[in-house]
Protein backbone atom coordinates (compact mmCIF):
# COMPACT_ATOMS: atom_id res chain seq x y z
CA UNK A 1 0.00 0.00 0.00
CA UNK A 2 2.81 2.31 0.97
CA UNK A 3 4.67 1.36 -2.16
CA UNK A 4 1.59 2.00 -4.20
CA UNK A 5 1.29 5.45 -2.70
CA UNK A 6 4.93 6.16 -3.50
CA UNK A 7 4.34 5.16 -7.11
CA UNK A 8 1.36 7.42 -7.33
CA UNK A 9 3.30 10.31 -5.87
CA UNK A 10 6.20 9.72 -8.22
CA UNK A 11 3.91 9.55 -11.23
CA UNK A 12 2.16 12.70 -10.13
CA UNK A 13 5.42 14.57 -9.73
CA UNK A 14 6.67 13.52 -13.15
CA UNK A 15 3.43 14.86 -14.59
CA UNK A 16 3.57 18.10 -12.66
CA UNK A 17 7.27 18.87 -13.04
CA UNK A 18 7.27 19.16 -16.83
CA UNK A 19 4.07 21.14 -16.55
CA UNK A 20 5.81 23.69 -14.35
CA UNK A 21 8.81 23.72 -16.69
CA UNK A 22 6.42 24.32 -19.57
CA UNK A 23 4.46 27.02 -17.81
CA UNK A 24 4.50 29.07 -20.97
CA UNK A 25 4.54 32.83 -20.64
CA UNK A 26 3.37 34.84 -23.67
CA UNK A 27 4.90 38.02 -22.24
CA UNK A 28 8.30 36.36 -21.96
CA UNK A 29 7.85 35.10 -25.53
CA UNK A 30 7.05 38.62 -26.70
CA UNK A 31 10.16 39.98 -24.99
CA UNK A 32 12.26 37.20 -26.48
CA UNK A 33 10.87 37.95 -29.91
CA UNK A 34 12.49 41.38 -30.13
CA UNK A 35 15.62 40.66 -28.08
CA UNK A 36 18.71 41.16 -30.23
CA UNK A 37 21.69 38.84 -30.08
CA UNK A 38 25.14 40.02 -31.18
CA UNK A 39 26.78 37.66 -33.65
CA UNK A 40 30.18 36.09 -33.12
CA UNK A 41 31.05 36.29 -36.84
CA UNK A 42 30.65 40.07 -36.92
CA UNK A 43 27.35 40.11 -38.79
CA UNK A 44 24.54 42.39 -37.65
CA UNK A 45 22.74 41.47 -34.40
CA UNK A 46 19.77 39.19 -34.94
CA UNK A 47 16.38 38.67 -33.39
CA UNK A 48 13.18 36.96 -34.50
CA UNK A 49 12.26 40.33 -35.99
CA UNK A 50 15.18 40.10 -38.43
CA UNK A 51 13.18 37.73 -40.61
CA UNK A 52 9.65 37.66 -39.20
CA UNK A 53 9.18 41.34 -38.42
CA UNK A 54 7.60 42.94 -35.39
CA UNK A 55 4.01 42.46 -36.53
CA UNK A 56 3.28 38.75 -36.70
CA UNK A 57 0.18 39.30 -38.80
CA UNK A 58 2.42 40.61 -41.60
CA UNK A 59 4.66 38.52 -43.84
CA UNK A 60 8.37 38.51 -43.12
CA UNK A 61 11.44 38.20 -45.31
CA UNK A 62 14.26 35.69 -45.00
CA UNK A 63 17.26 37.87 -44.24
CA UNK A 64 19.68 35.98 -46.49
CA UNK A 65 17.58 34.97 -49.45
CA UNK A 66 14.84 37.58 -49.37
CA UNK A 67 12.16 34.92 -49.70
CA UNK A 68 8.81 35.94 -48.26
CA UNK A 69 7.87 34.20 -45.01
CA UNK A 70 4.14 33.86 -44.49
CA UNK A 71 2.78 35.57 -41.35
CA UNK A 72 3.42 33.74 -38.09
CA UNK A 73 0.14 34.79 -36.45
CA UNK A 74 -2.41 31.96 -36.44
CA UNK A 75 -5.15 34.62 -36.59
CA UNK A 76 -4.20 35.36 -40.20
CA UNK A 77 -2.38 32.13 -41.04
CA UNK A 78 -4.28 29.19 -39.52
CA UNK A 79 -1.60 26.78 -40.73
CA UNK A 80 0.76 28.02 -38.03
CA UNK A 81 1.39 25.84 -34.97
CA UNK A 82 -0.47 22.90 -36.44
CA UNK A 83 2.51 20.65 -37.21
CA UNK A 84 4.67 19.73 -34.24
CA UNK A 85 7.57 18.43 -36.34
CA UNK A 86 7.64 21.71 -38.22
CA UNK A 87 7.55 23.73 -34.99
CA UNK A 88 10.41 21.72 -33.52
CA UNK A 89 12.49 21.98 -36.70
CA UNK A 90 12.15 25.72 -37.07
CA UNK A 91 12.65 26.46 -33.39
CA UNK A 92 15.86 24.42 -33.46
CA UNK A 93 17.21 26.07 -36.61
CA UNK A 94 16.12 29.58 -35.81
CA UNK A 95 17.31 29.55 -32.19
CA UNK A 96 20.72 28.34 -33.37
CA UNK A 97 20.90 31.00 -36.06
CA UNK A 98 19.58 33.84 -33.96
CA UNK A 99 20.69 33.09 -30.39
CA UNK A 100 23.73 31.07 -31.38
CA UNK A 101 22.47 28.12 -29.34
CA UNK A 102 19.41 25.94 -29.02
CA UNK A 103 16.54 27.37 -27.00
CA UNK A 104 15.57 25.80 -23.70
CA UNK A 105 12.20 24.07 -23.40
CA UNK A 106 11.02 27.11 -21.43
CA UNK A 107 12.04 29.57 -24.10
CA UNK A 108 10.39 27.52 -26.83
CA UNK A 109 7.19 27.25 -24.83
CA UNK A 110 7.21 31.02 -24.31
CA UNK A 111 7.64 31.68 -28.02
CA UNK A 112 4.81 29.32 -28.88
CA UNK A 113 2.57 30.86 -26.21
CA UNK A 114 3.29 34.31 -27.63
CA UNK A 115 2.65 33.29 -31.23
CA UNK A 116 -0.65 31.71 -30.16
CA UNK A 117 -1.88 35.08 -28.90
CA UNK A 118 -1.25 36.73 -32.25
Amino acid sequence: MKRHLATVLLSASTLILPATLWAADPAAGAAGWTKEYPQADGSAPRSCVTCHGRDLTQPGRQANTGKVIEPMAPSVNPQRLTDSAKIEKWLTRNCRWTLGRECTANEKADFIAYIKTQ
Binding site: S43, N64, A85, K89, T92, R93, N94, R96, W97
Partner: peptide
Protein backbone atom coordinates in the same frame (compact mmCIF):
# COMPACT_ATOMS: atom_id res chain seq x y z
CA UNK B 1 23.64 21.96 -43.07
CA UNK B 2 24.17 23.54 -39.64
CA UNK B 3 26.14 26.28 -41.40
CA UNK B 4 24.40 26.41 -44.73
CA UNK B 5 25.81 29.47 -46.49
CA UNK B 6 25.33 31.43 -43.29
CA UNK B 7 22.05 29.84 -42.25
CA UNK B 8 21.14 26.89 -40.09
CA UNK B 9 19.39 24.42 -42.33
CA UNK B 10 19.60 21.40 -40.05
CA UNK B 11 17.35 18.52 -40.98
CA UNK B 12 16.21 15.41 -39.16
Amino acid sequence: LANHYGDDASLS
